[in-house]
């Protein structure tokens, strides 16, 4: 990704587009989390770690990235991906724990099977946490990882 704009449709163009998508997604998620005041507990700091990792990763591969920077960016993106997936799990678990407080599910929670309980928590029928929201960080991480495939900095013969 050099100074000249890449030719539309070229691999360099798509790498730049994917990297831009990763950056915009990360920034948007940060704004969304800030609006939701997602810092009420220590656990709610997890996505901020992922956002920091993604921000650094995007900067690392933004221009003329060498092999080391690309590798570091990939590691950071992989970390963000894992944290995003962990966020889904924590949201489901949070919904599960909050179920007894629910006006409807609180009455029947003890009679429900374990599978039914986890399903209700997973599909967001109970609890306050949006189940799949953290996956947006995993998506940004995947975009960044894809943007490094065939990168001249790490795979000179790829292009």
């Amino acid at each position: 990704m050099t100074g000249r704009p890449p030719e539309v449709g070229s691999p360099t163009f798509f790498r730049a587009a994917l990297l831009a998508l990763a950056g915009v997604t990360t920034a948007g998620t940060a704004i969304e989390l800030a609006m939701a005041r997602h810092w009420q507990s220590l656990e709610q700091g997890i996505p901020w770690i992922a956002i920091a990792a993604m921000s650094v990763a995007v900067v690392l591969v933004m221009r003329n990235a060498g092999p080391r920077r690309v590798q570091a960016a990939r590691a950071l993106a992989a970390t963000a991906f894992v944290l995003g997936c962990a966020g889904v799990w924590r949201h489901v678990a949070g919904n599960y724990d909050a179920a007894p407080l629910d006006a409807h599910y609180g009455l029947i929670w003890d009679q429900m099977s374990s599978l039914a309980r986890w399903w209700a928590a997973f599909i967001d029928s109970v609890g306050p946490s949006p189940t799949f929201a953290p996956m947006v960080l995993a998506q940004a991480a995947v975009c960044l990882l894809l943007s490094t495939i065939g990168s001249p900095g790490i795979e000179p013969a790829g292009e």
Binding site: G9, S10, P11, F14, L18, V142
Partner: peptide, 11 residues
């Protein structure tokens, strides 16, 4: 080029 396009579509 088609490889890149496929990757983008998948992403």
């Amino acid at each position: 080029r088609s490889d890149s396009l496929n990757a983008l579509l998948a992403a």
